[in-house]
Amino acid sequence: MSSVVASNVSSTRVPSLPERYRRLWARRETIRYLTSASLKAGHRDKVLGHLWNLLDPLMFMLVYFFVFGILFGLSGGGRGRSIQFMLYILIGILTFRFISGVINQAANCIRGNRGLIHEINFPKAIFPVSVTLTRMYDFLWGTIVIFAFLALGGIWPTFHFLWLPLLVGIMLLFTLGAALIVAHLGVFFADTTNVINVVLRLLFYCSPIFYYVRPKSEIPADTAIFLVNHQTVHTLYMLNPIACFFELFRDALLWGDMPDPRMLLYTTLVSLGTFIVGFAIFSRSESKFAKYI
């Protein structure tokens, strides 16, 4: 019948890490329910409903295109260059909105479910996981806009598009890890939201969303602002995994290249590390959550 443990022993000892993974995995159906519940609630009362998943990234892209492409003159002339810059922004916006959206929501996802946590015992990681999956759904809708613009710009699918699922998977792992860490902090410090807001704002400007950072043959030299011409500065700048995700996605989709292997390796390792550390610290202290919220 049920997969629920027939006997459970709890003491001051924390279960082993594999056991904690196993318990979370056993809750995959609950995660699915929570995710679909918040998806249903998300756009329920809006006139345009789920259309906002397409409109949101599109509108924001147009705003940034207007400011940076036109007012600052970064897009260069001509239809082709404009669409190229639009796509450049779109990929950045969509990725950043996914990661920052998850981190923002994760900070409150445990406190927000205080009622449930005080009623029943279950692996609390289901909340940050379902927050991440909910946002992933929005992200995947957003990729439709990207493909539409790719078609508009006459960029047809290449073999390098096949990197996309892998890149999304790595990004998911990184975001999940970050969500677990932030959710964990959010339990013990109610101030987490304030700190998160500032950090995310900093990351927004320190990630290449609306400016170029890498010299590329496709980017016209007169319009490009290579903020980081200096090699060391550039390396430091690219330590930001969010910046790496942008560049990797752009390699595969926009420039039709193989993603930079060194960047890919670095991002994979950082994401794996973030997830492992995130899950370890979150699940180690989750039995204390009920006392703090």
């Binding site: 049920s2 629920v4 027939a6 006997s7 459970n8 022993v9 709890s10 003491s11 001051t12 519940a37 249903k40 609630a41 329920r44 479910n113 009622g115 449930l116 946590i117 005080h118 009623e119 029943i120 015992n121 039995s287 204390k288 009920a290 006392k291």
Partner: peptide, 29 residues
């Protein structure tokens, strides 16, 4: 099992059904 024990241990055989307060865990929408 909602609150972890600081000392000692708890052993429960079987499935626990609990109701601490009424429907606070429900999703309003």
């Amino acid at each position: 099992g909602i609150l972890g024990a600081d000392h000692g241990r708890i052993e429960v055989h079987g499935r626990i059904g609990c109701l601490m307060s009424f429907g606070v865990g429900f999703k309003a929408n």
